[in-house]
Amino acid sequence: MSVKQISIFLENKPGFLAEVTKVLGQNNIDMRALSVAESSDFGIARIIVDDVYKTTTVLKDAGYINSVIDILAVALPDVPGGLSNVLNVLADAKVNIEYMYAFLGGKTGGAYMVFKVADQDKAAAALNKYRIRMVDQEELGEL
């Protein structure tokens, strides 16, 4: 159970990310989640969208380098300690987290967390065991 994440190469210059988002907007692509990672001289925008095929086609046509990977999206219980609980499960399973970011479901209002982990199968098994709910690509559209 996973969702697709599209990563986009961002050159380090003013307006680059604005251009990318403009292209997506013009093509009616609705971003569910966005996170930007940066080094001193380049960046990576990581986005989650409903229509992966359309988005990658649009990006490619506009000349943006991108790559797609499967990634875990977890529905966080809306209670204090909800995130801590999920992280503990992953820690106990000895799953290393490379990066993570949060987004909100527009319709459900729920909080979701995206995890890039070293061993996705192991992470999914551990989360399943503790009945922590994960979201798949199909479900994204209903959030």
Binding site: S7, F9, S39, F42, I44, I65, S67, Y99, K116
Partner: peptide, 15 residues
């Protein structure tokens, strides 16, 4: 120039 072959989602790998 960045290429699809070199690009990944991981900052560490690109670095």
């Amino acid at each position: 120039e960045m290429t699809p072959e070199v690009f990944t989602d991981s900052m560490g790998e690109i670095a």
